[in-house]
Design a protein around this nucleic acid. Structure first.
Length: 139
DNA sequence: GCTTTGACGGGCA
DNA sequence: ATGCCCGCCAAAG
């Protein structure tokens, strides 16, 4: 878990954003970063997912956060050192009906035009009114 | 505690 | 179109 309070807030925001990704859809680390207001830290989003554990006592865990729906901007499942991880992610995505194409080197690609989920903002943010809307004199 | 790594991304050569 | 480089910053070594 994060050490600093700031990091913890980031983790929380990232996990929450990822939970908004609909079943059978995918988005990129970069987009999640943008959604939570830190467009310059897509890597940190990856760090958050890396830290997801199977410990269901924790507020966020891999059964709670659809980690598999987050891929890189090229539309491919990021290889993390050990290939089995990406292979597993591909398997889970296929289980959601997502077509994952195999590249020459075994890279797993997803077609954003088909499965991409890139809303301007999170539905939860709109609902929470976190996004300021024009309500009287300002524009 | 300091250095290197890394589930990224965009820009430039 | 491919590939290298740099920025970011928490974790791991």
């Amino acid at each position: 878990m994060p050490r600093t309070d700031e990091a913890e807030a980031f983790f929380h925001a990232a996990y929450t954003a990822i939970q908004e990704i609909p079943y059978g859809k995918v988005t990129s680390y970069g987009h999640i970063a943008k959604l939570i207001g830190t467009p310059q830290r897509p890597r940190q989003v990856g760090v958050c997912l890396k830290h997801l554990s199977s410990d269901t006592t924790h507020n966020f865990h891999n059964g709670n956060v659809p980690w598999q729906r987050v891929i890189n901007s090229k539309g491919m499942i990021s290889p993390r050192g050990h290939p089995s991880g990406a292979a597993n992610q591909a398997r889970v995505l296929r289980g959601e009906g997502v077509t994952v194409n195999s590249g020459s080197l075994g890279e797993l690609l997803v077609d954003f035009s088909e499965y991409g989920w890139f809303p301007r903002q999170l539905p939860s943010e709109e609902a929470a009114g976190l996004t300021p809307h024009i309500d009287s004199d300002e524009e």
